[in-house]
Computed example of a mutant assay.
Amino acid sequence: MPAVIRSRRLAVALLATALLSSCGVSTQSEPHAVDLPRRPLTEPQTNAAPEGPTGDVAEVLCMVRDDRLVQTVRRLAAPPTPQQQIDHLLAGPTQAERERDMTTALAGLSVEVRVGDDARAEAEITEADEGSARTDETLAYAQIVCTLTSRADVASVMLLRDGDRLEVPRADGSLSRGPFYGSDYIGLIAPA
């Protein structure tokens, strides 16, 4: 009887192996590239030719429309560094984005970004005219925080000036020295 049980177990094991190997999915020990759509799935299809270079990597930037944050996705050939992504944000909307009424609240700012091992970005902010009062500072800080936290390698952002933490408003108007999260500005994000 033990020989019969062994034979049945062997048959079941061979059948399971055959079924699993015939499903068409091979095992892999390394990750592989996946082809993604050429445009964001949340954005309506347009007939206009894309502006600027296109690629397989999505870069999320938070622009402003009607005093609300709106995400725009640009396609790049290679993943941007956090600094490159902020530089693209500081450059403002493209012509196609301006035609969709996107603007920025970041005029006159420069930002230097460092990301630590703890997934916290430090954004050192300098204004061209330090004495000017900004009426859109909440939107400006929200643009920086939400753009950086759209990255997989950034969980939170510290906003600094001359190495000291800035006390800045969140979407609800409360002041904080951070760290800041994208959720701190969720009330400013326009519905999709």
Results as ranks from 00 to 15, higher is better:
R74E: 04
P40S: 14
E99Y: 05
L89K: 10
V60C: 06
L76N: 09
A119L: 13
V64G: 05
A91E: 01
E51C: 02
E30A: 14
L89E: 12
G52S: 09
A96I: 03
D67I: 03
Q85A: 15
L14T: 11
A18R: 04
I5E: 07
P40L: 08
G52V: 12
A33E: 07
R9E: 07
G108Q: 05
R98I: 08
P40F: 08
E99V: 05
L10T: 13
L10E: 06
E59G: 04
P53K: 12
P31V: 10
R114I: 05
D67Q: 15
E30M: 09
D66G: 04
T104M: 03
T27G: 14
H32Q: 15
Q28L: 09
A77D: 10
R68Y: 00
D118K: 03
P31D: 13
P2F: 14
R8P: 00
T103P: 01
A78N: 12
L15W: 05
V34T: 15
G116P: 00
D66L: 06
T17S: 10
L90T: 13
Q83A: 10
A13N: 10
R120Q: 11
P80Q: 14
A13G: 04
A11F: 13
G24Q: 06
D56Y: 05
P40W: 01
L69H: 04
E112Y: 04
A33Y: 02
A119N: 13
V115I: 07
R68D: 02
T94M: 03
V34Y: 11
I86Q: 07
V64R: 00
A3L: 13
L89D: 11
A18G: 08
N47Y: 09
C23Q: 11
V34F: 09
T103Y: 02
V111D: 02
R65G: 01
E43R: 06
V73I: 15
M102E: 04
S21W: 06
S26F: 10
